[in-house]
Amino acid sequence: MKDLDPATRDNERTGAWVKSEQQVRREATRRKRALRSGSLATASTVVFLVLILWGVTASPGWPRVQETFFNPEAFVRALPDVLDGFLLNIKIFLIAEPLILLVGLLVAMVRSLKSPIFFPLRALAIAYVDIFRGVPTILVIYLVGFGLPALELQGVPTDLATLGIIALTLSYGAYVAEVFRAGIESVHPSQRSAARSLGLTHGQSMRYVVLPQAVRRVVPPLLNDFVSLQKDTALVATIGPLEALRQAQIHASGTFNYTPYLVAALLFILLTIPMARFTDYLAIRSQRRRGQ
């Protein structure tokens, strides 16, 4: 309480703090300015949207496009099935996500092991990342979806959605492992020496000092990967489970109207937007923290 500035101390002596006229004026100006920039943003958005809408609908092919892509009847007809399929997308996503985090973290930690005993493990981890980052996700889905069951091994799942989850986990696990590894390497080496010098073992330093800092730093890029995972669940359609895109395909092929695809697209957007905004929010927050 000794570092208060003179004005505050003055107010303490006289009792309650009364907002000075200067401050009242300042706040009024600020409010006015906020209001003005708010209405400016709204106005410019409206003008912008109207221009785009006008541009599209004035084009010569518009009536045909409207009929095949924006048909309200087809929309309503497809909605229940596509929505039903979309629940499978969400399920695939919710199961794959924690698996991916686990695989990614394990692989990243194996790669950080320095001891020569772990050389085979480390080599395996590097090979895994190199292979699955290089092969397009859709190919991994084909290979796992058609290849695994063809082996006719005992215990290999035959459920198409499960195979899709395995494929997505393999593919995304490699990316996420690299994200984690970058996070681990971004923690300054002095943090590790400080931990080791306190007597913590390699494992303990990793667990209590390095990983907590690394994970915090990689949350925004991880969320970004998950936004992309959410829509890539649609790639699983290629091996056949009845998820949103597959349902839309079925509807579209029956009627030669593409509106069902629009339904699927809208559902995916509705799912990814909140995640994207959340990512932005976290990024801004961590930036602000670092700025302090």
Partner: peptide, 9 residues
Amino acid sequence: FQAFNLFPH
């Protein structure tokens, strides 16, 4: 150490 090296988290 020369620099403080506290664990920031």
